[in-house]
C-alpha cells in the first residue's frame, strides 16, 4: 500500500481518537461544568453524614455548585468534618446552611446549600459553615415510626 494512503488513514484514526477523548470530556464528562474551574474550599461539621461520600455533588437550588472534596472524623468534637470545593463563580453568604439530602428515596446523598440571606459578607477560602443539618438516616426514621406506632396501638385497641 502507498505510504500516503497509510498516512492519511493514520491521520484520520488519530484525529478521530483525539476527538473521542475530547468528546468524552465535554459531552459525557463534566469538564465544561464545574470541577476543573477555579474553586474555593469551605468546611462544614455534621453529627451524622449518613452515606455521604467524597465526590458527591454540592447543590444549591438544584444546581451543582461544587463537590465534596473529603470527609474526616474530628476526634475532639466527635463530629464529621466535610470539606466542600465550591465554584468561584458562585459566592455564598456566611449564614448559608449546609444540609445532607438524599436524591429520591434510595438515591445517592448530596450536600444542599440553603441561603438565609441575612448576612452581607460571603464565605471565603477556609471558612466554616456554622449551620448544618444532618443526614436523615432511614433506619432511624423507620424505628421512630415503628415505636410511635407501637405506642399508639394499645389506645387503638381499647377503642
Amino acid at each position: 500500500m502507498e505510504r500516503t494512503t497509510i498516512d492519511l488513514w493514520v491521520g484520520i484514526f488519530a484525529a478521530a481518537g483525539m476527538a473521542a477523548i475530547l468528546g468524552l470530556a465535554m459531552k459525557v464528562g463534566n469538564l465544561t461544568s464545574s470541577s476543573v474551574g477555579e474553586t474555593y474550599t469551605v468546611t462544614a461539621a455534621f453529627e451524622n453524614i449518613g452515606g455521604l461520600k467524597a465526590r458527591a455533588p454540592v447543590k444549591s437550588a438544584g444546581v451543582v455548585v461544587g463537590r465534596v472534596d473529603g470527609i474526616r472524623f474530628d476526634s475532639k468534637t466527635f463530629e464529621a468534618v466535610v470539606t466542600l470545593k465550591l465554584d468561584k463563580r458562585y459566592p455564598f453568604p456566611t449564614d448559608t446552611e449546609a444540609n445532607i439530602y438524599t436524591a429520591g428515596l434510595l438515591g445517592e446523598q448530596y450536600v444542599g446549600l440553603e441561603i438565609a440571606g441575612l448576612e452581607d459578607s460571603n464565605l471565603k477560602e477556609g471558612d466554616k459553615i456554622k449551620r448544618t443539618q444532618d443526614a436523615v438516616v432511614l433506619e432511624k426514621m423507620i424505628s421512630q415510626f415503628l415505636y410511635s406506632k407501637a405506642a399508639e396501638t394499645p389506645t387503638d385497641a381499647s377503642k
Binding site: 477523548i21 468524552l24 470530556a25 459531552k27 459525557v28 464528562g29 463534566n30 469538564l31 465544561t32 461544568s33 470541577s35 476543573v36 465526590r55 455533588p57 451543582v64
Partner: peptide
Amino acid sequence: FWSQMQANVDFREDIVNGV
C-alpha cells in the same frame, strides 16, 4: 439522559483514569 451523565461522570476520576 445527558445532564445526569454529565453531573456524575468526572473528568479526572473517570475519564483520565480510563485513559
